[in-house]
């Protein structure tokens, strides 16, 4: 009996220890990023301190204004907002007919499969031709190049998410409007869109988050701060000759703050978005 109790106790200790280690590995990187971003320049040149001795917001000021990163922040917001608009508009145009109109099932399946296959497309494989196209169209170093490419790469998510949301809205509601004499456009705008509002919002936050994080295309297709996005700026702080750790950390914190804020709205749909609706909201 005693040995059994001992076994249970040991197992409990192992579980608690395991959870402790996991929790530490999960949280410490984030803590360390924030802690470093609050250190003063003087503190960097002393030995490493686990807690900032004199917490300061100076690194944030330095990144945003002395280094002028607020321009990159503005570019990022502009590119992401435009991407959201284009992606949702195209996504609606593609999902409306396959969810609200009578179409052969094979068409619906074909469209969805095709969208899924786009998700599998590795960006680096199309970087080479896109670079050539962007230069030919003379939109190199312009936000429009990024907006186009981000919209394309986020379209699969948008199509699958919108398909899920639109399919849940009863057809009868639109039918009622049609019977009352509204045409399809009016019933789409007045009946369907408001009902799909929360779904559109969720898709918008997720597309915005993905576009916000994108780095490869932004690195390749932009060259000057006038059009670079925030992640490119962060990268510049990392690869320069002398790394200013607190500025770099502050830039990292800013880069992740925006998606974290959006997550407050979109968290319930995040997993549904990432898994193309296999895992529904809980």
């Amino acid at each position: 009996m005693r040995s059994r109790q001992a076994a249970i106790a040991i197992r409990l200790i192992l579980i608690v220890a395991g959870l402790g280690v996991a929790g530490f590995l999960y949280a410490f990187p984030l803590y360390w990023l924030i802690a470093t971003s609050l250190k003063s320049k003087a503190e960097l040149y002393q030995s490493i301190t686990l807690f900032p001795r004199h917490p300061t917001l100076q690194p944030y000021y330095s990144v945003l204004f002395e280094r002028g990163f607020w321009v990159l922040l503005k570019n990022s917001v502009l590119v992401c907002a435009a991407t959201v608009l284009v992606t949702l508009a195209v996504g609606l145009v593609i999902t409306y007919p396959i969810t609200r109109l009578t179409v052969p099932p094979s068409l619906r399946v074909g469209v969805l499969n095709w969208a899924l296959s786009l998700r599998f497309l590795p960006p680096v494989a199309v970087v080479v031709p896109y670079f050539a196209i962007v230069r030919t169209l003379q939109i190199y170093n312009q936000p429009i190049a990024l907006i186009g490419i981000y919209s394309l790469f986020n379209l699969p998510f948008a199509i699958w998410m919108l398909k899920g949301f639109l399919a849940e809205i009863p057809l009868e509601l639109e039918e009622a409007a049609l019977v009352d004499g509204a045409n399809r456009w009016t019933s789409f705008r007045r009946v369907l869109l408001p009902l799909a509002g929360p779904g559109l919002m969720a898709a918008a936050t997720i597309v915005f988050t993905f576009a916000w994080s994108e780095f490869l295309f932004a690195l390749i297709l932009t060259a000057t701060p006038n059009s670079q996005t925030f992640p490119v700026g962060v990268q510049g702080l990392v690869t320069q000759f002398e790394i200013i750790w607190n500025d770099m950390a502050a830039a990292g914190v800013i880069a992740m703050t925006v998606p974290l804020l959006l997550m407050v709205i979109g968290r319930r749909y995040m997993v549904a978005g990432l898994t193309f609706g296999v895992i529904r909201e809980k």
Binding site: P29, I48, I243, A251, R267
Partner: peptide
Amino acid sequence: LYVLAVLPLVVPPVAVGVVARLIYAPGYGV
């Protein structure tokens, strides 16, 4: 736990790279 699990998924990989740099980098790695 759900929210805690979603959190890393939305952190931009560039920012995660910065964190890793702060941890592993020679000289200043924690």
